[in-house]
């Protein structure tokens, strides 16, 4: 049985090239990268200022906040669930941390840990309710979105928490390189680590199996419930961290932190080839997807398109991306 791993046909060269090409398209990241390169070229040709240092910095800065959440959202989508409450969790964690540092006069570290704790706890709650009670993630996390909004208002009374301890302003104001600060550094490190976990570890493989077919994963001995709940907790904690970075950047615990992020994040990672149906996608893809979304938004501003059209563009791109995802599944992954 020598033909197990190799195809022994004279046309092997072209066949394997074709297969490799199909494989690349199937992965999804390459397609998004190519599309992004085209878009960047397009905006740059129309308005060279698009590639100005200031504009690039602005894009990367925004991406670093939502990108942190996109990492968690990607893991959760791969595990076969999703979370609509990330924006609320980001905002709530930020104001809770701010309150702990100011009103409760606790050390900055305790405040930060408290913020992360709030995010992780909400993630745990979402996960337990979705997995154990069988309430669809859509309903549970949509509910949590409203609950979070309400809690933000009741924690703050509707007023931003201000002023914050000097340490927080320092975190927000640090320029590590190219005008980018700690949030960007954290984003890069977290993205690389998460990509490695999904790509190379046993845990990552188990998450793909869980999202691909929960029953099969269960039958091969994987604790699918733990995978899903763990992913929910990860999203919650990362949302909290993103929210607190924004707070540090603004220098106040604003009540509008994170509002509207949930859809941006999901749109972004889906554009990057992360499947809404679970079991497919990579952190690299999700991150590139959200970057592309921000490139489009920024590019439209730079070339002077009316802001209403920016919203329309985001909508169109997301629907197209999901359409591509469905086509890709039909041809490369299929089933049934």
């Amino acid at each position: 049985m020598n033909s197990a791993a190799e195809v022994s046909s004279p046309r092997r060269g072209t066949q394997s090239f074709r297969r490799r090409l199909i494989g690349l398209i199937a992965v999804g990241e390459v397609g998004v990268l190519a599309a992004m390169a085209l878009l960047i070229a397009f905006f740059w040709l129309l308005e060279p200022a698009f590639l100005s240092e200031r504009n690039i910095r602005a894009i990367l800065n925004v991406v670093s906040f939502v990108g942190i959440i996109a990492i968690g959202q990607t893991i959760l989508l791969v595990a076969g669930e999703f979370d609509l409450s990330v924006g609320s969790v980001a905002g709530l964690s930020a104001v809770v941390a701010a309150k702990l540092m100011t009103a409760a006069a606790l050390p900055v570290t305790v405040g930060i840990l408290g913020g992360i704790g709030v995010g992780a706890l909400i993630g745990l709650l979402n996960g337990l309710i979705v997995v154990r009670l069988g309430i669809p993630a859509f309903i549970q996390t949509l509910g949590m979105l409203f609950i979070g909004q309400g809690l933000i208002q009741s924690v703050t009374g509707g007023y931003p928490v201000y002023p914050l301890p000097e340490a927080i302003n320092t975190i927000g104001g640090t320029d590590l390189a190219f005008g980018l600060g700690w949030s960007f550094a954290f984003f890069i490190i977290a993205a690389v680590a998460a990509d490695f976990v999904l790509r190379r570890t046993v845990l990552g493989r188990n998450i793909y199996a869980t999202g691909g077919n929960k029953e099969v994963a269960h039958l091969v001995g994987i604790n699918t419930n733990a995978c899903k709940i763990g992913a929910f907790i990860t999203v919650g904690a990362l949302s909290a961290i993103a929210g607190m970075f924004v707070m540090a950047d603004l220098g106040s615990g604003g009540t509008s932190i994170g509002s509207g992020w949930e859809l941006t994040v999901i749109a972004g990672v889906v554009v990057g080839g992360v499947s809404l149906f679970g079991g497919a996608g990579t952190v690299a893809g999700g991150v590139v997807g959200i970057l592309m979304l921000k490139v489009v938004q920024s590019g439209l501003v730079v070339i002077g398109v009316n802001s209403n059209w920016q919203q329309i563009a985001v909508g169109v791109i997301m629907v197209m991306a999901v359409g591509l995802d469905i086509v890709r599944r039909r041809y490369f992954i299929a089933g049934a």
């Binding site: 190379r200 570890t201 046993v202 845990l203 493989r205 188990n206 793909y208 199996a209 999202g211 691909g212 077919n213 029953e215 099969v216 994963a217 039958l219 091969v220 001995g221 994987i222 499947s275 679970g278 079991g279 497919a280 992954i333 299929a334 089933g335």
Partner: peptide, 26 residues
Amino acid sequence: DGLLFNLPVGANITIGNLAPLSRRGV
């Protein structure tokens, strides 16, 4: 309840059997 259509042939064989093929979870 057999195949994982989102994973390739190889990963379908090793899924659930990765412990001896990994070190510290990698």
